[in-house]
C-alpha cells in the first residue's frame, strides 16, 4: 500500500499513468454512455404515468449520483493527502471540483425541466432538490476558496480540510433538510406514487451511471495532467517533455 502510494504519488509518474488511464477508459466510457443513451431514449417503453417525459431520468439521476460520488471521491483524496501527504491527491481534488459542480448543476437543471411537466412548476422545495442545491453551493464555496488562496501549499491543505468539514456536515444537512421537508410538505403538492421500475428500464440507467463515472475519470485525468504540468513547470522532466514534443511536431 505504502509503496504503491509513493510510486503513483510522484507527479512525474502519475502524469504518464494518467495519460494511459485516459486512453484505456475513454472507449469504455463512450460505449457505456451509448448503451445507456440509446437504450434509455429509444428502446425503453414509455412510462405509464409520465409518458415520454420520464426519459430525462436517464440524465437526471446519474448526474445527481455523480455529484454525490465525486464529492466522496474528493473526500477520500483529502484523507489521503492529509495523512500521507501525497501531492497528487490534492491535485485530484482540484481536478474533480469543477466537474462535480457541473454535474450538480446538471442535476438541478434537468430536475427543473422534469418538474415542469410533473409538478406543473419549474421548482419546488422538495427535499432532494434542496439537498442538491446545497451541494451545488458547497462546490461553489470550495472552488471560491481554492481560487482565493494564492499560496498553493496552504491552499491545498485548506481545501482538503474544507472538503472533510463538508463531508462530516453533508449527512447532517441532508437529514435536517429531509426533516424540514416532511414538516413543511404542503397538501397541494401530490407526488405521483412511483412503482418499482421495470428491469428493462433500469439497465440503461446503470449503463449511464457507469458511463458517466468513467467519463468523470477521463476528464479528471486530463485535468490532472494539466495541473501537474502547471505545477511542475520548472522541473527538468517537463522541460525534456516539451523539447521532445516540439521536436516531434517540428515547432
Amino acid at each position: 500500500m505504502w509503496q504503491f502510494l509513493h510510486k503513483y504519488g510522484s507527479p512525474k509518474i502519475f502524469y504518464f499513468t494518467a495519460g494511459r488511464w485516459f486512453r484505456w477508459l475513454a472507449l469504455p466510457s463512450l460505449c457505456f454512455l451509448l448503451i445507456g443513451l440509446v437504450g434509455g431514449l429509444a428502446f425503453v417503453p414509455e412510462d405509464y404515468y409520465q409518458g415520454e417525459g420520464f426519459r430525462i431520468i436517464y440524465i437526471h439521476a446519474p448526474s445527481a449520483f455523480l455529484a454525490m460520488g465525486i464529492y466522496s471521491m474528493m473526500a477520500i483524496s483529502a484523507v489521503i493527502f492529509l495523512v500521507w501527504r501525497i501531492k497528487v491527491a490534492a491535485m485530484w481534488i482540484c481536478a474533480s471540483a469543477p466537474i462535480g459542480a457541473w454535474f450538480s448543476f446538471l442535476a438541478l437543471f434537468t430536475g427543473a425541466i422534469w418538474g415542469k411537466p410533473m409538478w406543473g412548476t419549474w421548482w419546488i422545495w422538495d427535499a432532494r432538490l434542496t439537498s442538491a442545491l446545497i451541494l451545488f453551493f458547497l462546490y461553489l464555496g470550495f472552488i471560491a476558496l481554492q481560487s482565493a488562496i494564492t499560496d498553493r501549499q496552504v491552499g491545498d491543505k485548506a481545501s482538503a480540510i474544507l472538503v472533510l468539514i463538508g463531508v462530516v456536515n453533508l449527512p447532517i444537512i441532508h437529514y435536517s433538510v429531509i426533516w424540514w421537508n416532511t414538516l413543511h410538505q404542503g397538501p397541494t403538492i401530490s407526488r405521483l406514487q412511483k412503482p418499482a421500475m421495470d428491469p428493462s428500464m433500469v439497465y440503461p440507467l446503470y449503463g449511464m451511471i457507469i458511463g458517466l463515472f468513467l467519463f468523470y475519470f477521463c476528464i479528471a485525468m486530463l485535468r490532472i495532467r494539466c495541473e501537474i504540468l502547471k505545477r511542475e513547470g520548472r522541473s527538468r522532466w517537463v522541460e525534456d517533455l516539451v523539447r521532445e514534443k516540439m521536436a516531434r511536431y517540428r515547432l
Partner: peptide, 8 residues
C-alpha cells in the same frame, strides 16, 4: 535539508 516555498 530545509526547504521553503512561497506560492510556486
Amino acid at each position: 535539508h530545509l526547504e521553503a516555498t512561497l506560492g510556486e
